[in-house]
Design a binder for these strands. Sequence first.
DNA 1: TTGAAAGCGCTAACAC
DNA 2: GTGTTAGCGCTTTCAA
Lengths: 331, 331
Amino acid sequence: MTTLKQLAKLLNVSVSTVSKALSDADDIGEETKKRVKELAETLNYKPNKLALGLKSNVTNTLGVVIPDILNPFFAEVLYGIQKQANKRGYDTLVCLSNESTQTEINAIQLLKQGRIDGFIISPAAESQQTNNFSHIEAAKNERIKFVMFDRVDNQIETDKVSIDDQLAVYNATEWLIKKGKTRIAYVSNIENLNIGNDRKNGYREALKNNNLAFHKNLELEWSDIATSHQKLAQFIKEEKFDAVISADNSSAIMIQSIVKTILPELFNQITCIGFANAKTAMLTYPPLNYIEQNAAQMGEKAVDLIIERIKDKSDNPVYKQVKIPTHIVEA
Amino acid sequence: MTTLKQLAKLLNVSVSTVSKALSDADDIGEETKKRVKELAETLNYKPNKLALGLKSNVTNTLGVVIPDILNPFFAEVLYGIQKQANKRGYDTLVCLSNESTQTEINAIQLLKQGRIDGFIISPAAESQQTNNFSHIEAAKNERIKFVMFDRVDNQIETDKVSIDDQLAVYNATEWLIKKGKTRIAYVSNIENLNIGNDRKNGYREALKNNNLAFHKNLELEWSDIATSHQKLAQFIKEEKFDAVISADNSSAIMIQSIVKTILPELFNQITCIGFANAKTAMLTYPPLNYIEQNAAQMGEKAVDLIIERIKDKSDNPVYKQVKIPTHIVEA
DNA sequence: TTGAAAGCGCTAACAC
DNA sequence: GTGTTAGCGCTTTCAA
C-alpha cells in the first residue's frame, strides 16, 4: 500500500501538500498537482479507508444482516443491496444470523464497532418468535441508523421496506378464484414469521370476500424439510383441492412435482402459485405461476433508505415505510 | 461509541492506563483494573476496530468475492465462509462480481484499500473465458494474500480449494453405469467455465473406461434460462437416453420435471443425477439423486487456508491445493 | 503556494 | 503502578 507519506518523500514535498493536491485544492500550484497526481497514478495510490474512517467518522460502509442466505429470496435481496451500495459508493459488511437471535446479537455487536455508517437487517426467525428485538433497538441509543426489510416489525420505529404480504396473497387468491377455482389450498412453512400470518390473512380474506367456504383442513403447515415430501404427498392424497397457494419459496415447486407424480391425472386441474423469482420458477415444468416480490428492488430501496437516513442529521427523523409492489407472473 | 479517552476522563486516569487495564497488563493495580473494567462494562465500551486496524495493520477482516449469489452453490459456500470466519474471530467484507470482470476488478480494488487481511475469491465467468486474471494476480505484488475456491486456475499460484470436478462426474457416470444405464446424456450450462470442461471430461472418460459408446448428440449445452425449457424439452423428445447427468445445479431438476410432463411413461426408466444440496434436491419429487459438493465445507476450508496464509510470514510460501471430497446421495 | 501541527482511537516503548 | 509520547494514514486549520 502506497501512503501519502511515501509520495511526499519521493516528491520532496509535505504530506499535506500531497493530500491537497490529490483533492484538487485550489491553493496548490498546477505544476505540483500534476507531479503529485502522476506519481500517485504510477504507484497506484489509494487512500486508506481505515484512516479516512477514523478521521471523519464516515466509513462509507453499510452493514447487512441476512437471516438465511440459502433462501433464494434473501440471496436476491443481497444482490440488490450490493448493486445499489456499490453504485452509491458504499461497501457492505455482510453478516448472517442463520435465524438465531444469539448470532444476530453477535452480528450487530460486530457492526457497531465503529466500522459502518448504518445497517440493513431482516430479523432472525427466533427473534421474531420470542419477540426479542431489544438488541436491534439498542442500536438507536448508540445513534446507529438501521433499516429493516421484509420481516418488518411494528414495534420498532425505523425505516422499513417490505412488500404488502397480505395484499400479495390476497391478490393471488383472487387470481385463482377468477380462474374458477373454488377449493384453494394454502401451504406454508413460514408460520413462525409475522409475514406468514399476514399472508395467511390475505388468503382467508380473499376467500371471505369472494364468498368461498373456508376449510381448515385445506391449510397445511410444515417446517421440517426432511419430512416435507411425505407430509405434502399425504396432504395431496387426502384433501381435494383445485388450486394451491404457497406462502413460501419452495412449497409450490414441490407440490407441482408431487402432484404430477402421484396424481398425474389431476395435474392439469390443479393450479399452483407461490413466491418465487424468474429463475426458481423455471425449476419446475411447466414453470410455476408466481408472485414476483422484486427482491432485488427491495434491497436497492433499503440501501437508498439507509443512505438517506445517514445523511439526515435531524434530531426528529421522520421514518419511512416503503412497500415494494408485487405482481403475479403467469407461466 | 464510548472511547478510551472518555473512560480515562471519567476515571481521572490516563488513556494508556485504561488501555492496559482492559488488556489485563500486569503493571496495573488490581483496584484500578477493577474500576476501569466496571465502567467499560457499564458504558458498553468496544474498541474501535478501525483504530486497531490502522495501528496494527491487522484488521481481522476477510474479503470475499462471489461470482453469483443467486447460485445456491455459492450461497452455501458463503454460508460456510461466514460461519468459520466468525468462529475464528474474523469479519467478512462481501463483494459480488456478478460474473463480470470489471465488477470483479472494482471489488478487488475496494478490498485492497487497507481494510482486509486477505481475501477469498472464485473468479467471474468472464475472467475465465477471457483468461484475464491479471487483476487478481496483481494482489500478489502488493503482498495481499488470497485463496481461490471452486473455479481454481492453474496459472495462478496461490492456495486453492475445490472439488475434483472430473472425478465427481466420473464417479456419478459410473454410478449410473452400474445401474445398467447405457445411454447416458450429459447436460450443462457451464460450458464457459473450466470446471465445466473438467466435468465433461469426467463423463467422457467414464464412458470410455466402461466401453460405452460416446454419442455427441447426447451432450446438450444451454445457457439462456429463458429458452432452457424449450431446449431441454426438444432434447428429451428427440434423443433416446436412459439416464442424465447434469453438470450444473439446475438442469437435472428441470429435466426430471420435463420428462415427467412430456414423456411420463419414460420417467421411471430415466435416472437423473446432478449437482445439488440437501435442500435443492428436494425441490423435485421424487428427490433428485445428487452429487454433494459440501459447499459449506469448501467455504470453511477457504477460511482456514487464508488465515493460515495470513499468519505465515515466510517469504517462500508453500501453497496448498485442497480437494474437498464429494459423494453421491441417492434419493 | 506550501508546510507544520493537531487530532481521529488505539497501543507500546519508555519515563517517572 | 501510572503517565507521557510517538505514531499508524489521513484531513484540516493555521502559519509562513
